[in-house]
Design a protein around this nucleic acid. Sequence first.
RNA 1: GGCGAGAUAGCUCAGCCGGUUAGAGCGCAGCACUCAUAAUGCUGAGGUCGGGGAUUCGAGCUCCCCUCUCGCUACCA
Length: 680
Amino acid sequence: MKNWKRYTVTAALPYANGPVHIGHLAGCYLPSDIYVRYLRANKRDVLFVCGSDEHGVPITIKARKEGVSPQQIVDKYHEIMKQSFVDFGISFSIYSRTSSKTHHETASAFFKKMYDEGKFIEQETDQYYDEEVNQFLADRYIVGTCPKCGNENAYGDQCEKCGTSLSPTDLINPHSTLSGAKPVLRKTKNWFLPLDKLQPHIKAYLDEHKDWKVNVYGQCKSWLETGDGLQPRSMTRDLDWGIPVPVAGAEGKVLYVWFDAPIGYISNSIELLPNDWEKYWKDKDTRLIHFIGKDNIVFHCIIFPAMLMEHGEFIVADNVPANEFLNLEGDKISTSRNWAVWLHEYLEAFKDKQDELRYVLTSIAPETKDSEFTWKDYQARVNNELVAILGNLVNRVMVLTDKYFEGNVPDTKGCDDLQKFITEQREKVTQSIEEFRFREALSEVINVARHGNQLLSEKEPWKLIKTDKEQTGVILYDCLQIIANLGILCEPFLPFTSKKIFDMLQLDATAFSWKDIGRQDLVPAGHQLGKAALLYQKVEDEIIDAQIAKLQQTKAMSAPTPEPVKAEPTAKAEITYDDFAKLDLRAGTIIAAEKVEKADKLLKLTVDLGSETRTIVSGIAAHFAPEAIVGFQVCVVANLASRKLRGIESKGMILMADTADGKLEFVSPKNLTANGSMIS
RNA sequence: GGCGAGAUAGCUCAGCCGGUUAGAGCGCAGCACUCAUAAUGCUGAGGUCGGGGAUUCGAGCUCCCCUCUCGCUACCA
């Protein structure tokens, strides 16, 4: 194993369009914080960087919706997020933001250097454009009806109701959110990172890191091996919120948010250490580690490394321990649906109970697969593990020592068996943390407390005191050493608990490091202890019920959203009679239907139009079984330009009507008419 | 459709290179104890390892087929 001189640890930059929730904490910030605290306990040189990610389209949309500027949005959430991290003891060396001056300069210079060295390809592409406000539209600025679930407010890239990924062309009745106009395609110039050409480098890079977590390595391989492999990716966007592209002729364009955001790790390092940052980013003996959620894998394992390699001056990540997702009470966590436990709200209901949440989230962290947070489970883990095992051990030892020895550490020595045991536990925890298995590490910490309880049950000092005070002292001495050792051992996971333990023992926490774990003289003989105080309180049913009720209320409020009330389909622009007259609408009967191979949503229909039969491919497979629609008479747009779909030529279109419940229905003549009859 | 990950006890999850009786915690049952926040300790019951087939002396693990869940990605009125 390489002997690293220092560590640069990054935690994914949270997007500044909402507060931080338990999913963020479990997926990224707790693991990184545990790791960093562990490194610091080992006296390693470590820089822990994070900050708000404040550019990109969703923020501009949110700003528009709330009638404020994007800057106001990010200012608001930056403060909330920053405070949550402070409150939960996430020990960043710096938490800054991508709207900072330093970041603008850094990202701009980064791009400029690559541009000057010809690392980008200039390319014209067709983008959607809003002719009324004279602006290109990102996918998110285009709204229409989701073809899958009928949600009339689906975005051009995704329907948030049913989660389907979309492209703007998928939407029924697409319109610009800026003006309501129908978007048109227009040419625009952007700069692309030729990932296709860089693929060999990326592949070589990944090949050196087959030890990465299976979910991470597998995902990367999938990007390289799917289809034609990596594709060029645009690093600029037509948008007015972000970092201007520092190139002549690029007015009105900004850096792609995924280009600028990871550079934020570097910018924030510069902000903290203006004169000393380079060794954390350019020295081969620095170990760079990115903690992220699984949605960020491609950016941190492929695109950002590609950027760094092409730029040429920087080291790339040695590991990217991405977690999967945390679900909440049976559902995906969602900021927009308000299905989340927000950190700032948690602290209102559970004042000073940061470690309780840190404990539970670490215990159930989605390290290898998606996992689930439920309030009942939270209660059980806090009460049965934290309170009963750890809190109770500390309390009973303190009380016994106070009772039998007036709160003085008995004058004796510890036993070798105990030293051996704790040292072994330290090694287990160490190894688990080094391998990013924090769940396992934490459970070994608890096992130390468990061992203390076993010791007490076995030796029964409350009986022994009646006959042998000296031996009683030995037992309590050992238990006190266990507690002190736990103080160091639990610090990465439960920093607030650790502090309480050291306060109670009247010891200076900073005097100890990781290698002291195992020592039998952490609390010296004769030392006066502080007052016993409970580390944790039991969580009562009422508190939990209130939290569950709160979530149920959220669900009840968001459930009737398929309200077709205000679901007035947005009116399209007015057309003249001549426009209408251009349509050749005819009645036709479906005489055959079959599923199109290798396409989930397509049906190949054969339609009898009287004078001829047509093949029409229609994306309705999700709504109808092929055999069920044969014989239906439908309304056909007969003069629509033909188009190839999945290799089948489609000549015409079937008119469909959205129903109130989000399904589709054929528009049919009420009474059967001759196939081929005009409809007008 | 392609790709990736997953499915193991009632619940949450381990299970390294295929090797004897598949593990842990919680929950449940019983016993012990009373210093402790009715906390702790000990013991026990609970599993066709998603389904089917193959390779092997031997498969939770390898190979093939299938089902379901999550994610990425493609096609789509």
